[in-house]
Amino acid sequence: MSNRTPPAELVAGPAVPGVAKINPILIADKVSRHFGGLMAVEVDHLEIPRGAITALIGPNGAGKTTFFNLLTGFDKPNTGTWKFGGKNLAHMPAFRVSRLGMVRTFQLTKALGRLTVLENMLLGAKEQGGENLFVALIRPFWRKREDAITERAMALLTKFKLDTKSEDYAASLSGGQRKLLEMARALMSEPEMVMLDEPMAGVNPALTQSLLHHILDLKAEGMTVLFVEHDMHMVNEIADWVIVMAEGRIVAEGPPGVVMNDPAVIDAYLGAHHDTDLGTLTGQMEIAEGMESALVKHEIEDEIEAGQETGIDVDPSTEHPEPGARTTESKGDDK
């Protein structure tokens, strides 16, 4: 895709693990975390380029999620320091990291089920004085801000094709829609950097394309994106820079085209999954077929149908909620 930042604008030297960036937004040093005897993360030095899309890839269990948790204050490292925009983040609680402008999403989607889609969005906004216990009691104090953030929320929901669902409980959304909601919600605070943990996982191919476009839009708006993804083809489509993790360490980094042909990377992948072809575009469907698991296939098919609901590439007239959400009762009942 177009508008890719050329490697020469990101790094000065050769693309080796831990290479210095010309304009880094995040710099991590000696960050390690072990669980018992298992070294889950052991990152010696890492820099994330500002204003670019960086993909963090690696086989399952490589430590990508743990590394995300450490950087965002959701887990405490055994050693290490890291700086975001020059500010030291080590020992900072997660909510402060988020307030500084580094907002994350989760691998296992965390939509707030019994809040409406719109309420989910409003919760993402900053500087709502009404979130103070005493101010909350007097509506005129927070009404204006509420109107402003509602407007922003509806604009984002429209962009993510969730505007028609704004009054529905988030629990009634399909898995893919919840991923979209979580991403849109993270954008409510106008962060400087968004960290997406497997934004594409469990999302049907139709929705994947629009997700990729949303991520490209973030960059166009000046945000820095760091995202975790398994699938090299998707990474190849949008990433400016790729960092490869295996067994807790950074084993390679570089522009996508170079990293994909790096023997160390292929080794890291093949070491973990002998049966997986590196970079299968429609990987989910093929794995489902490979496993011959009726259940998995069924779920993916449901995802695809649910995606049609949002009107991406297809007619939005069908109503078919995800089987995971317990939406057996008819809608509008007791509303």
Partner: peptide, 9 residues
Amino acid sequence: DAVRSLGKN
């Protein structure tokens, strides 16, 4: 955790 990730104490 979701609420924490949105900057609330």
